[in-house]
């Protein structure tokens, strides 16, 4: 357990450097300015991972702990909420997404041979599968948001 936490922290340090660098080059936020926000996000993620590890019931995915925890600590009125919101607003979402997809790309390379073997029918169906879920959800959301007069 301790060994795991140690490993997570080391990995978070590495990933934080990438986010800070991307945030600096792409979105012109100085790394020092972004540091408190990155630390806050790392802290929340770490606590979420630990909570998932210690709870013997594994039916809840660890990202659910992380998402809910991050949500709770930033609800207006919760002590420190404003501070966390201000800090993390300096960390651009796209600066986090870039290293994720860079790691993903290297990981995906392994599946390329299998991908190349898929027939054209699978590729077509696959695109409609993704479009189906995306548009399906967007249309339902649009209808309800309009009915409620939110948009």
């Amino acid at each position: 357990m301790l060994k795991n936490i140690q490993e997570w922290i080391l990995l978070f340090i590495i990933v934080s450097v990438m986010v800070a660098v991307g945030n600096w080059i792409g979105y012109e936020v100085m790394p020092l300015e972004a540091l408190p926000g990155i630390l806050a996000l790392v802290g929340i993620s770490l606590v979420g991972l630990i909570l998932h590890r210690v709870n013997p019931y594994k039916g809840i995915p660890s990202i659910a702990y992380i998402g809910i925890l991050a949500f709770i600590v930033t609800i207006p009125g919760v002590p420190g909420a404003e501070q966390i919101v201000e800090w993390t607003s300096k960390v651009n979402l796209l600066a986090i997404a870039t290293p994720i997809l860079a790691y993903a790309g290297i990981s995906i390379g392994r599946s390329w041979a299998d991908f190349a073997k898929l027939g054209w029918k699978t590729i077509i169906v696959g695109m409609f599968v993704l479009l189906g879920t995306y548009l399906g959800s967007a249309v339902i959301a649009e209808i309800l948001l309009r009915m409620q007069g939110i948009i």
């Binding site: 993620s45 990202i63 992380i66 991050a70 600590v73 919101v85 979402l93 997404a97 290297i106």
Partner: peptide
Amino acid sequence: QSENAETLVYITLTLLIAKFGVQAGP
């Protein structure tokens, strides 16, 4: 490296999920 990258996707993704969360609170 490719195998290791898979876990790194997951670790980095937790930061994105945390970012989602802190945007959702307010």
